[in-house]
Design a protein around this nucleic acid. Structure first.
Lengths: 173, 173
DNA sequence: TCAAACATGTAACACGTTACATGATTTG
DNA sequence: CAAATCATGTAACGTGTTACATGTTTGA
């Protein structure tokens, strides 16, 4: 998964591993956010497989490695992308794992935990909202928000809203 | 995670690793379904930690190991259960990973893939529906469906419905 | 000049899957 | 009696995280 995401980032522009981590922490953090511990080994792998190339810059910044995707890499990425999304593997959510067993907890604890869950989701929802405003409401405007990128933000927020409403309604919170 | 789920199953009744796998494939498959390759080592771990005990039955079935949870195991399980659900780690869904990059695919392919996604979710939704009918609509009635167990089914179905509606609406399918 | 941020990388560990290996029991 | 299902277990592998190790550049 990580390798494909990194290839995807390189489709847009050349960047370093550090740049990719930052990009992830902003653009994709609400559905995937890899650590350096998986990014750097993944870049090594992609280089060895011949999908990307390193363009070390000699300028001021020593050691910084700017990667670029080549034709083979693009082909591999597009082949992966043009393949059905697997719903089964994404599963619904680890949230359900605990709720499944809530019969073993006293009612007042269940209520408290569910209220905490809703508050937590509301906080996440708020963060996404602020992120979207920061990304699209552009004084800066450096990066035009791609429609599908925007879609993942919209979906995230609507999904959070749905979950909050569902919990409040189902559990009478 | 697996270890706690197995402890949770043993809260209800004593059973074997094989039984647990079957129970998972029915009751929890829509949000978690571990393989034997993680169940058996987990049971070994739980035994070594002193949370569960083996009661090998001498009857006809040789080699079958029936596990039971002890007081320490119950305490550990309840402590885990009575801890806030972590929304962050559950993330929204790997579905978004691909959609995020759909700008690199021709429009007709995107449309085809999204239609396939919706059809796939509809199939999952139908399976859940049939499962629920099988579990609650009881001629058999052997196993009374716990309210929270039912909740995970309801949530699953409503989540699928939401996602289907969302995709159709957002992408004008 | 010193702290924060930039920048890369590795090693140990955690946790899960698939495939393999093995054998008993049930049922047509 | 053969096939399906029951039943347990291990080994190799995949993929990710955290913590550690190291050094540079920038800005108050």
């Amino acid at each position: 998964m990580t390798e494909f995401i990194l290839l995807g980032f390189l489709m847009e522009r050349n960047m370093s591993g550090y740049d990719m981590k930052q990009h992830m922490s902003i653009s994709t953090a609400h559905f995937v956010d890899s650590s350096f511990g998986s990014i750097y080994p993944a870049l090594k792998q992609l280089t060895q497989k011949g999908y990307i190339e390193v363009n070390p810059i000699q300028e001021n910044k020593k050691g910084k490695k700017i990667y670029s995707i080549n034709e083979q890499g693009k082909a591999v990425f597009l082949k992966w992308l043009d393949t059905p999304i697997e719903v089964a593997k994404s599963s619904i959510s680890p949230v359900l794992v605990k709720i499944f067993f809530y019969q073993y907890l006293p009612k007042d604890r269940v209520r408290a935990l569910l209220e905490q869950l809703v508050a937590d989701i509301q906080a996440h929802r708020k963060n996404l909202d602020e992120l979207k405003i920061r990304l699209e409401g552009g004084e800066t405007l450096e990066q035009k928000l791609d429609p599908y990128e925007k879609c993942t933000l919209d979906f995230g927020m609507d999904m959070y809203d749905f979950t909050i409403r569902w919990c409040k309604n189902y559990f009478h919170l």
